[in-house]
Simulated scan of single mutants.
Amino acid sequence: MASFLTGLIGRDIGRSLSPWLHEQEAAAQGVNLIYRLFDFAADGLGEADLDRMLAALQLCGFAGVNVTHPYKQAVIAHLDELSEQAAQIGAVNTVAFRNGRRYGYNSDIFGFAENLRTGLPGAALDQVVQMGSGGAGAATAHALMGMGTGKLVLFDPNRDRAQTLCASLNAIYGNGRAIVGDDLAQAIGSADGIVNATPLGMVGYPGSAVPQACLEPRLWVTDIVYFPLETQLLAEARAAGCRVLDGSGMTIFQAAGAFEHFTGRKADPARMRASFQAISAR
């Protein structure tokens, strides 16, 4: 029986369902897979420890690891090679170890796009407001552009980071399609939907990136956070009459992509969704 050691690097990830998703899919395929959490916050580690952690996992024979907030961009400096897509967006959520080298991939783009396509069918994309432009935000922004978003308005406390992402998006998809917003209420007032690509709402990061007063019934709202499934933003958006979509689908679809990088086997997203729903119902 094939065996694989895998895991997840990030901060405040104790409630992640990734171990369950990957291990259940492996069991269904007759594969022995162990998936472990490496919570840098709980272990007193920081960004400076990334290379040491990756080296230790390689030495222990890991097939690879997922990477989540806040290290999706920082981890790139410690990799040997990037997929074309990961290099294009400047963020990595999956690292595979092969032949003594570290390969970086990004399955978040596919995960977000599939979640939006299947979870909010027919959602208008003429203008979208996105909160956040970090590693996850880069992936969701590229996914939105690839799905045909006409104008993407980015908001981030780190305006330089948002400007950098805008420049990259415009160079690829067409000048002027991405801008950095100045007035959130005004931007939302003419938008079709809102994407939260920040950690706000996640366990350990309470709050919402969008003021409740900005939410109107005509909007669709989606969140990349999935623990909890019902973030403050989604609860307030639902109460305002918006169409809402949680981050579970993005997690499932990106996990399916990562599983293939780790094992060389295709995952079944429908089966992974059933696993997600089973553990969430407990």
Rank of each mutant, 00 (worst) to 15 (best):
F40T: 08
L45F: 11
V67F: 07
S133I: 05
R52H: 11
G137Q: 03
T94M: 04
G122M: 06
G44I: 00
Y71W: 14
D160I: 13
G44H: 01
G137K: 02
H69T: 13
F110N: 08
A41S: 15
V67M: 04
A91E: 08
L79D: 02
A56R: 08
G111Y: 07
L45H: 05
L79T: 00
A91F: 06
Q127V: 11
E47N: 01
V95C: 12
V92S: 04
V92T: 09
G100I: 08
F97W: 07
S83V: 00
M131A: 15
K151V: 04
A41W: 02
L154S: 11
T94K: 03
F155R: 01
L154T: 03
T94A: 13
A139R: 06
G100L: 08
V65G: 10
G90D: 10
G148N: 13
V92F: 08
I76S: 11
Q127H: 14
L57T: 06
G119D: 07
L144P: 01
E81M: 08
F155K: 02
H142N: 12
A141W: 11
L144W: 05
G100N: 08
D156C: 05
F40S: 07
D80S: 04
H69P: 00
H69K: 04
I89F: 07
T140Q: 11
V75D: 10
D80V: 00
D49N: 12
Q73K: 14
L154N: 12
G134T: 03
L154V: 03
N106K: 14
M53I: 04
G61Q: 01
A123N: 05
D156S: 12
I109P: 04
A96G: 08
I109F: 12
T140N: 09
E47L: 12
A63M: 01
D39M: 07
F40E: 06
Q127A: 14
A91W: 12
